[in-house]
Amino acid sequence: MDSTKPLIKIDEETSDFIAEILEKGAQIFPKEELERILTCIQCGTCYGSCPSGRITAYHVRVIMRKAQLGLKEEVLKDENLWNCTTCYTCQERCPREVETTDTIRLIRNMAFEAGYVKKPHLIVSRNFIETGHSIPLRDEDKEKRKRVGVSEIPPTTLTYPEALKEVQTLVEATGFKEKVLKLLEEG
């Protein structure tokens, strides 16, 4: 539940969240596309289209508005942020071409960094760091593979340890591994 008090004192309690999102996002996406979030007119097409918004308290329009107003903490700590299925329907229909879904991914990156993260996501991340895959290969899966006539172990990082090493080098270099391990330690 949102325990935030209603009153918003601009500047005293807000920051230039959009600038942060743009700075972070510019690593990946074209800035001129991301900054369309400034032009959001709160028409509600996004929320009206949202499959998750119908069944959870995930409210993409409100997140866009809170981002505009600079309510960073409130946005990051709201766990409904994680109910977006990234179906992109909102982004496809936004009349101002706001990159809603990609903005949600960026905000999630910031939430992840700030430690607002779900346990199962950390487990998926650990699995990836350890095996190169997001899920484990279990014995029953090996059996299945044999039954349909493919190699018992797929020709991926699971077969090639040097390839797994490469992936592990990369996740270290990007700082992802460190982030995940730290969060796992913190529990």
Binding site: N109, E113, H121, V124, H133, A163, V171, T174, F176
Partner: peptide, 19 residues
Amino acid sequence: NGASCCPAPGVFGSFDLWN
């Protein structure tokens, strides 16, 4: 040979886009 997870767009993309 030696491919890994893609990595998943909505999962790893939500954690760390640079990675």
